[in-house]
Amino acid sequence: MLNLIFSIDDDKVTQMLNQMIFNRTAFAKKCLAFMNGAEAINYFQQLNERDASLDNVPALIFLDLNMPVMGGWQFLNKMEEEVIQRFPGIKIVISSSCLNPIEKKQADGNSNVIAFLNKPLTLDMINTLKHHPELKMNFGVCDKYNLTQRKFADSI
């Protein structure tokens, strides 16, 4: 199980449902919800590197693309610019309802993004995500799929 994850989505119902899915799949001990990218960036700005721990730096961020104030792409840029070097190792999963293949391609080009999931998130998707090469060490799952990262993305 992951210690801490973020869910960034402007839709409150989606947030609630995501929490439920994370609980049921025992995916993370704690999930912090942010209504847009700026709120999450603000969180990192408040956090001192010396205080960083598994309990306040998320292992994974679920990111919606279409949000007011600061959308997903802008958030990704901000992360690269000022967050990743301070808190390395944060991985990002994009969850979007837009089925635009160009955006998926764009997401593939970002090294921090480990998966692109079409909304809605499902229990199956999250359970499969536990086998991701970047995450599987956090879960007591046997690597029965032995998937490469690329194949993994396709299998979802």
């Binding site: 839709d11 989606t14 449902l17 809605p120």
Partner: peptide, 14 residues
């Protein structure tokens, strides 16, 4: 339309 619809689908799944 899609945003609330995905929520509905999610609710059904859950």
């Amino acid at each position: 339309l899609r945003a609330p619809l995905t929520n509905l689908i999610s609710i059904i799944n859950l």
